[in-house]
């Protein structure tokens, strides 16, 4: 018996809703997880998004130079100054590096395992970003072929960006630290006994609290990662912009301005 056209549409609609509901419920259960099919789709999309992202970044950087010329010139002068300071510091580090290399050779000769290996870093380009503010997730163009795994830390030139939540061949999904589900333990740079926890505030910023309600944290303090959790120690998170004592919880709450500009991330590095 042939169904009338309207009934076919109704059946198709009901079947679509049922199928999507099943996928949705499975997705709630495996929050952030991925199947082989999902990995294949992401890999295919990442293959196309990579070149497109490069073109768009090229256009954006070109237009930025035209419309923000004065700002670009000022930034350039500031960077030149910073560069010369960093070159001098780098020269000192090179001397220390040579010394360190001698000590490492000596430790190997004496079979001493006390000095840990430095983390390997893989550079990556951001190829896609969700333009809405729902999930602070973006995709980078390196994945399992470079040794990237779930929970690897992601940084850029100024500070901590986030962590890897999923990776495959040629792609990885990164969740930013400004996402509310991503908590990071921090310490204050000037006094590493002052420790706390920070997370996204749901409005593209960071909020946190000090573990000690009497901690002497002040506005302007720079926060860095501790070695508690998945993030390596010493990566800059942001600067304290507000300190407030909550009488209900007896905790000192801090509002933090992230070091990283999450509206414009183009290149990141993954710490393996």
């Amino acid at each position: 018996m042939k169904l009338p056209k309207n009934n076919k549409k109704t059946v198709a609609l009901i079947l679509s809703i049922m199928l999507l509901s099943i996928i949705l419920l499975l997705s709630y259960k495996n929050f952030g997880g991925s199947s082989a099919a999902g990995g294949f789709i992401r890999q295919s999309v990442a293959t196309v998004q990579g070149p497109l992202s490069k073109v768009s970044n090229g256009i954006s950087n070109g237009l930025r130079g035209i419309f923000n010329f004065r700002y670009v010139v000022e930034e350039n002068d500031k960077l030149k100054e910073e560069n010369s300071i960093l070159r001098k510091e780098n020269a000192l580090f090179l001397l220390n590096k040579a010394e360190l290399e001698e000590l490492r050779i000596l430790s190997q000769a004496l079979n001493y395992d006390g000095v840990p290996e430095r983390n390997k870093v893989v550079a990556a380009d951001v190829i896609a970003m969700d333009g809405s503010k729902w999930f602070n997730i973006f995709t980078i163009n390196v994945g399992t072929e470079s040794g990237i795994e779930k929970d690897d830390a992601v940084v850029n030139g100024v500070g901590l960006v986030g962590k890897i939540i999923n990776s495959g061949e040629g792609w990885s999904k990164v969740i930013g630290i400004i996402d509310e589900s991503n908590k990071v333990s921090f310490k204050v740079l000037r006094d590493d006994t002052l420790i706390g926890i920070v997370k996204g505030d749901g409005a593209s910023g960071l909020v946190g609290f000090m573990l000690d309600g009497k901690a002497s944290v002040i506005v302007g303090d720079i926060l860095v990662t501790t070695n508690i959790g998945i993030y390596p120690q010493g990566i800059e998170i942001g600067k304290v912009s507000k300190v407030e004592f909550d009488n209900d919880t007896q905790l000192k709450n801090v509002t933090i301005t992230p070091s990283v500009n999450f509206k414009n991330i183009q290149r990141v590095a993954v710490i393996l």
Partner: peptide, 8 residues
């Protein structure tokens, strides 16, 4: 699949 943790 590309941008979200919840599919559908």
């Amino acid at each position: 699949i590309c941008f979200s943790n919840i599919i559908g």
